[in-house]
Design a protein around this nucleic acid. Structure first.
Length: 211
DNA sequence: CTTACGATTCCC
DNA sequence: GGAATCGTAAGG
């Protein structure tokens, strides 16, 4: 599927901002993936902040490792990691040297729904539309994002993966909750999502919403 | 080298 | 509620 819309990548200075603020500002933005002949676009509807300092739930809580080295590099880089059988996509934020990041947990398909369905079909049959991208692992599968995109510069016009402006869909209520799936610092209100959007991930019933 | 453990997803 | 499943990180 093709379209003629122009997508303008967010600048590195956008991502150099403070983690919580950037996490909120990323809601509604376009995730644009170029793969093969396809351009896949999804509107971000759920994010989580992982703080650069004093966040026991962050992968950098015990310092820099081979896996997390990109978090200390330039803002706007992709931090992709694998958990169980799934990949998760994060954007590096904060100025270089401060390892904050934002986990992209869910998005709403905008362009390329059929290719997304094909990438997802590898594991399931006859998915409902919302199951295409309503979780961090599902989103990566639908957009064909894997460890080969580790460190990719998402602010570059030519990048196969970038995050772009969206000037037309910014009228939404934002919800806030605890983060999902972690065992440390579980009470911090660092998950942000577009209220009443069906692509926001389903989450464990434990814990409450915390607004 | 060996082992423990998930920022998940899917099935029972 | 529980298993799958594999890259990462830490320890011997």
């Amino acid at each position: 599927m093709k379209n003629n819309l122009k997508y303008t990548a967010l600048s590195q200075s956008f991502f150099a901002g403070e983690t919580v603020g950037v996490s909120k500002q990323l809601l509604g933005k376009f995730l644009v993936r170029s793969v093969g002949e396809s351009r896949l676009v999804a509107r971000i509807v759920e994010t989580e902040a992982y703080l650069s300092e004093q966040d026991p739930a962050a992968h950098t809580s015990s310092g820099r490792t081979e896996r997390t080295k990109v978090l200390y590099e330039e803002p706007g880089s992709a931090y992709v990691f694998k958990v169980h059988a799934s990949c998760c996509l994060n954007v590096v934020v904060e100025p270089e040297g401060r390892p904050g990041c934002v986990l992209i947990r869910a998005a709403e398909p905008v362009v390329g729904t059929e290719p997304m369905r094909e990438y997802r079909r590898e594991s399931k049959q006859e998915l409902r539309e919302k199951e295409l991208t309503n979780g961090p692992g599902k989103l990566c599968q639908a957009l064909s994002i894997d460890l080969s995109l580790y460190g990719a510069d998402m602010t570059s016009r030519n990048s196969a993966l970038r995050i772009c402006e969206n000037d037309s869909e910014n009228n939404f209520e934002m919800g806030v909750s605890r983060r999902v799936g972690i065992s440390k610092a579980v009470d911090l209100p660092l998950r942000f999502f577009v209220e009443d959007n069906k692509f926001v991930s389903s989450q464990p019933q434990t814990g409450g919403r915390l607004r």
